[in-house]
Amino acid sequence: MVKQLKRIVFKSYVIGLMIFTVWYGYFMFPLIFGFEGKEDAAASIEELSMSESKEDQMFDKLIAEQTHRKQTDLGYRLIDQPYMEGRFHHIGFNIQKDNASTCVQCHGNVPHDESREIRSFLNMHTFYLACETCHSMPDKDSKPWLFKWYDKDSGKIAHNPKDLIKIEDLNASKDAKRQYPVYGNYGAKIAPAENDSGEIKFLHGKKEMAFAQSYKTKQDLLTPEKKSQMKRVIHRKVSKKPVQCKQCHQEDQPYISFAELGYPPSRVKELTNVGAVGMIEKYKTFYMPALLKPGGAELDK
């Protein structure tokens, strides 16, 4: 029995060594025959040579840049951030991915591009507002909607974000080592919900997500007519006219109650009073004061 056991151990040992020998030969192959960086360079040439037009090249570049990150080592701190070619200012962090939104699945989170003047502002809102918050409106006869935060990962109702609540305290601090507030990156978004006999249900729930995902996976099998039909069903809750800026950014009964969603008083004031409202009101006419700026009056003309 012991002899047999010894034999098994010995055979296993020999088999292990044989596997290691083969692996070592495989491991050493690129180290002997490969040049560092050659594979990347070859791939780059191959991809670029395949790209005929500038648009093709840009497409390839976008795909290649997907995972490109930049690390800045300050010795006492490592800043790991997304890399954007030609960008001077640091970004610092990634925005959390919204896995719970039906719309973002196809439209991404920079979807507004029609109006040149305000597209950046609209895109700014997509980081903390669900699309349906502005692009869907309750029917005249139905109850007014509630607005709640949903968790970007699970899609479930989330508490008012702590990072939002503490903004006021962070801004009040004058300490050189103070923590800076981060706006909009709360891991949650505001979305409309309905009170269904005591149970709060978001306008876009699991059913909508299932629709969109089913469409995405099966669209190659659909006839063109069915595609159009399904798109119409998915977009059935989209209003013809979206919620207007001033409906939320006003002091008197705003469409969304910022205070109820955890916005601190100073931030509520900023959003419903001078700051944002002034910006919207005077969008075309409000200029920076040019009182002490030589040539300011000329510039304003």
Partner: peptide, 14 residues
């Protein structure tokens, strides 16, 4: 005033 808008991580466009 600059940071009123530029403090938002999502201020972007394509």
């Amino acid at each position: 005033n600059c940071m009123m808008c530029h403090k938002h991580r999502g201020l972007s466009r394509i």
